[in-house]
Design a protein around this nucleic acid. Structure first.
Length: 602
RNA sequence: GGGGGCGUAGCUCAAUUGGUUAGAGCGCUGCCCUGUCACGGCAGAGGUUACGGGUUCGAGCCCCGCCGCUCCCGCCA
């Protein structure tokens, strides 16, 4: 190509030069005689002029017939724009290119949707944007996201390299380990009836790399999980996967704080303060009702258990009597909620397992509530003091087992913040990033349905050393050496110090998680084996790369930061994947499909 | 697996309580226009109201089903 400059390059100092630009027809203004065409490439845009007084009519005619988004090559002389016609909106607005030659490299058909007007384009249905992803990605907003993603990937690599880490790739055709997330299976043609699985993460390989003496590993790893999707979940996604040997939790905190500092600087030119705050799991739940608190606004939860344990309001005292708690939250200034909004909130709370949502509205100096008549003066006084109740407040309650009560109010807290933001009563600075570590998670959680303990994080998480004796006798009390990194209520990542002693690992698998020994052997035998031959103490972390980019870009959906994302049902609207396999393919794999073929949709 | 929202012209949206020929802006086509940059002006084309049933004298609107997109719960060690 003869391109001499990109479309965001020409300035006054180029006046007089003959240049060639290539790019897309961004917009066209045909004034009957003179014709202006803004040519755009990924860097920006430049105005070109087709004036019949200066160029042959034939060229002007071709220019006049161009559709938006056609690809052209324009050669001409850079000149100062006539006085009063500068365009301050674009950096090249001082000059224009007087075209002398025009080549149409690709005449574009009429577009399915406009992409030159950012406001209109931003409203286009996502279905349309996904089907014509190549058009959507041409929008400057999307291009910016892709650029930022690239910058962050490179900053990550350079930081990790400086810290002495090796970037090592691990297989994506892996062994099926049917625990945790559902896996994508890949049939093995060489031995029909056997399957690979796509890894949910490189967890086991990175630990093996530690046994292999790598000491410091990282990878921008693609991970696959066949679970239902959300705005922040895709069936395939990218993790910044990290593992180190001979370290403790503090080493990981310092490493990641340094990495995020570098990333925020590279992406947003922001200096984020370190070290980050730390919250225990218990404190996070107690104050915010969630293990990934958004600390950019108040409405913290308050414990009222002691004050209501003897209450004549049986819903509260009953909950305490059966080992539960009473939690309250002051939604400052929200007494104005309508009955309808209150019902919506109650339904919302019920969807998380609440039996109801008790409340007090403080209006005209009065406590308006169906339950306040059951409260003693002492109870009212306790509420007033602990919750700092004032005129116009709305108090919400949850009385249940500790975790449930906290989580219900935690969800309501987020819901309220969202409502207040929409109505403009709460403003959060978009440039504010509240980082924090959540630590001291319980190693195990109990599954009531299956009547057994399962790993809160994963079965390789090391218990806090002094808790190891309690593994079998008192599983509930064992703390894990697990940590999560959280920003603005988004779980950016999590990790742990791992178990490196085969006997402890075996105890966890067989005695705590009660996986039968033969199953342990077939699924994790190679790890237990590897740990026999000199496994260093090690630990690591994985950061959700897509979520991190989405946070940096200020978008709630990771689809906006993935070039070719899938829909909520896991389909690719551009290529129409997944699709049926041919009879020949199935025969090779010795697979028979029993499901009815999908219905054609119109 | 469950719940909510949406689906009307190429795009974004209207369409009173179920009532005449389903409208607007942008885009598109044609004509006019020599300094625009969201250029402007005139004219025009464009609809199986996602799809399939039903109720009704009459359905974009009500009911049932179905497909797609989306948000949430479950799920995501």
């Amino acid at each position: 190509m003869k391109r001499t400059h990109h479309c965001n390059e020409l300035r006054s100092e180029h006046i007089g030069q003959t240049v060639t630009l290539t790019g897309w027809v961004h917009s066209k203004r045909d004034l009957g005689g003179v014709n202006f065409i803004d040519i755009r490439d990924r860097e920006g845009r430049t105005q070109t002029v087709f004036d019949p007084q200066d160029v042959p009519q034939a060229i002007c005619d071709v220019a006049a017939g161009l559709h938006s988004e056609s690809v052209i090559e324009v050669t001409g002389k850079v000149r100062q724009r006539p006085a009063g016609t500068n365009n301050d909106k674009i950096p090249t607005g001082q000059v224009e290119v007087l075209a002398t030659e025009l080549t149409v490299l690709n005449q574009a058909a009429v577009l399915p949707f406009v992409i030159d007007d950012p406001e209109v384009a931003a409203k286009v249905n996502e279905e349309m944007r996904l089907k014509y992803r190549y058009l959507d990605l041409r929008r400057p907003e999307m291009l910016r996201n892709m650029r930022l993603r690239s910058k962050v990937a490179i900053a990550t690599r350079s930081y990790m390299d400086e810290q002495g880490f090796l970037e090592i790739e691990t297989p994506t055709l892996f062994k099926s380990t049917p625990e945790g997330a559902r896996e994508f299976l890949v049939p093995n043609r060489r031995e029909p009836g056997t399957f690979y699985a796509l890894p949910q993460s490189p967890q086991q390989f990175k630990q093996i790399l530690m046994v292999a003496g790598v000491e410091k590993y990282f990878q921008l790893a693609r991970c696959y999980r066949d679970e239902d999707l959300r705005a922040d979940r895709q069936p395939e996604f990218t993790q910044v996967d990290i593992e180190m040997s001979f370290i403790e939790r503090e080493d990981i905190y310092a490493l990641i704080e340094g990495l995020l500092k570098r990333v925020w600087k590279a992406a947003l030119d922001m200096d984020i303060p370190t070290p980050f705050k730390r919250l225990t799991f218990e404190e996070a739940l107690n104050r915010f009702g969630i293990d990934k608190p958004d600390t950019r606004f108040g409405f913290e939860l308050v414990d009222m258990t002691e004050d209501f344990k003897g209450s004549s309001f049986k819903v509260f005292s009953g909950a305490v009597a059966s080992g539960g708690v009473v939690k309250a939250m002051n939604a400052k200034g929200l007494a104005c909620v309508t009955q309808g909004q209150m019902e919506t909130m109650t339904d919302y709370a019920k969807s998380f397992g609440a039996k109801g949502l008790a409340y007090i509205k403080v209006e005209s100096g009065e406590w308006k509530s169906p339950i306040v008549k059951f409260f003693s003066d002492a109870e009212k006084e306790a509420l007033k003091t602990k919750l700092q109740i004032e005129e116009g407040d709305l108090i919400l309650f949850a009385a249940d087992q500790w975790l449930t009560a906290c989580e219900i109010l935690g969800k309501i807290r987020l819901y309220i913040a969202e409502v207040l933001q929409k109505t403009g009563k709460l403003t959060i600075d978009p440039k504010r990033f509240d980082f924090l570590w959540v630590v001291d998670f319980p190693l195990l959680s109990f599954d009531k349905e299956q009547n057994r303990w399962y790993s809160s994080h994963h079965p390789f998480t090391s218990p806090v050393a002094e808790d190891i004796p309690k593994l079998v006798s008192e599983p509930k009390a064992v703390r894990g050496q697990h940590y999560d990194i959280v920003v603005n209520g988004v779980e950016l990542g999590g990790g742990s110090i791992r178990i490196h002693q085969p006997d402890v690992q075996k105890t966890v698998f067989e005695q705590v998680l009660q996986i039968p020994p033969e199953e342990t052997q077939s699924r994790f035998g190679y790890m237990l084996e590897a740990f026999k031959y000199g496994a260093p103490p090690h630990g690591g972390i994985a950061l959700g790369f897509d979520r991190m980019i989405a946070t940096l870009c200020g978008t709630p959906s990771i689809r906006d930061v993935i070039a070719f994302p899938k829909t909520a049902k896991g389909t690719d609207l551009m290529t129409d994947a997944p699709s049926v396999a041919t009879a020949r393919q199935l025969k090779d794999l010795r697979l028979e499909v029993k499901a009815a073929p999908p219905k054609d949709q119109s």
